[in-house]
Design a protein around this nucleic acid. Structure first.
Lengths: 237, 237
DNA sequence: TTCATAATGTTAAATGCGTAACATTATGTT
DNA sequence: AACATAATGTTACGCATTTAACATTATGAA
């Protein structure tokens, strides 16, 4: 039994060193902590997935959304479809637009597909989308903050809603877990409902960005009818 | 001259595929884009640091704060001192505390050094701190949103300030660019001033977390006197 | 069409990573 | 103190990654 917890201490220090950096040389960490590279290797393998060793470097394993492994799997399955839908959505965006990007597993791809040099104002309320947008040069980013929900990596709260209601949006890109002819458009997380609704209300045009697997599905939280959208952007028709 | 920009297209698609994942197999990307691994390798080297190849995988280079290379360098210089200061600060935190963590290059390390299993409520207003905190299991995270400032990776805005003024904080961990006996405590970014001040006001105890290199320095934006803090937590005395 | 140039594919060799096996040192117990 | 066990260090070898060099295919211009 490791009474001392030295390994855990080192892992925390590795985490601290990694804060900011994307990857660090195995040798550098070993030198910094005054142990051998082999020990760092062993630490990383025992870290339970917090870190990973790749090509002599350590990287933070940085799993998108902590916990939600179900979503993560679904993610991979329809990855190509989502990418296709996002590519279409990205073509709708013009220079100097003010866009709203919803949360979920589809929308980060849209954020990543925005033309690199295009001047934009982007509004979002999820951590993974914000992170992608924050790296852009010519984009003004507004993140609606509040209480963090790990399942969707999104935030919720009245102050943020108030702020959203005072913003004007050209194009809102909304995602959904289900699109049904009679039951309308639904998602899984109730706290997202008021945000999505406010975004749709404030936007000149709203677009529903979903892969075709969502058609016919129904989720718990209803937030709009299909008629609320200027168009449904999907990999198929 | 690459008139077509195929490479750039692929880089965007790689970015989109990487959205969420920390790393992706080189072979998987090559298969998805229908090109050879060698081409992906060349893309990555020509990406100007956006991506990196490590151990047969591609990772997002994920540079902490886009742009601020000056800070990034200073960062590295006093890295050990900052880590030491943060380690001391981390020891002040107890189970079930509500803590405020400031923005900057020091505080991400504090966030990373928080005991892994400790139950906490954490308030922050910078993207890099939020990202680290969001991976914790037993922590309720509140991010103060608003307009993004790339230089400090932080957010500002009246709605977030209002929200902060309604929160109660046990311990606020504040960073600074300068600590001076007569000129007080200062930082470089004016938009941070009202946030820091509100946090100090709402906190039972505020702690100034700085490495010793900050002593005697003065920056443009004044936000507090040294007397406002329960103690100054630094690598030296 | 023909040519020049860019883009991509293929192959092959060497560097360096990753793993295992064993040696050594620390730690705690009786 | 002597022992058992955990923790770390060292070495060496197989193999995947990486790089370079060259072959091939696309692209655009004259």
């Amino acid at each position: 039994m490791s009474r001392t917890g030295l390994r855990e201490d080192r892992l925390e220090r590795i985490g601290a060193m990694l804060a900011g950096q994307s990857h660090l040389k195995l040798a550098a960490i070993a030198a910094d902590l005054g142990v051998s590279e082999m020990t760092i290797r062993r630490d990383v393998t025992e870290s339970g997935g917090r870190f990973a060793c790749l090509g002599g470097h350590v990287i933070g394993a940085h799993n998108d959304v902590a916990g939600d492994y179900v979503l993560e799997k679904e993610h991979d399955q329809h990855a190509a479809a989502k990418l296709a839908a996002c590519a279409k959505a990205a073509r709708l965006i013009e220079e100097d637009d003010t866009i709203f990007i919803d949360c979920g597993t589809t929308t980060p791809r849209l954020a990543a597909l925005l033309p690199a040099e295009m001047r934009l104002t982007a509004i979002c309320y999820s951590l993974n989308v914000a992170e992608i947008l924050s790296r852009r040069q010519n984009t003004r980013l507004i993140l609606l903050g509040g209480l963090f929900h790990p399942a969707a990596a999104s935030f919720s709260g009245e102050p943020a809603l108030e702020q959203l209601r005072r913003l004007s949006i050209n194009k809102a890109f909304i995602s959904a877990g289900g699109v049904h002819e009679t039951r309308g458009v639904t998602c899984s997380h109730f706290h997202e409902v008021p945000v999505k609704q406010a975004a749709i209300e404030r936007a000149v045009d709203s677009y529903l960005v979903v892969d075709a697997s969502k058609f016919g599905k129904v989720r718990a939280a209803h937030f709009a009818e299909t008629g609320a959208f200027a168009s449904i952007v999907s990999d198929q028709d």
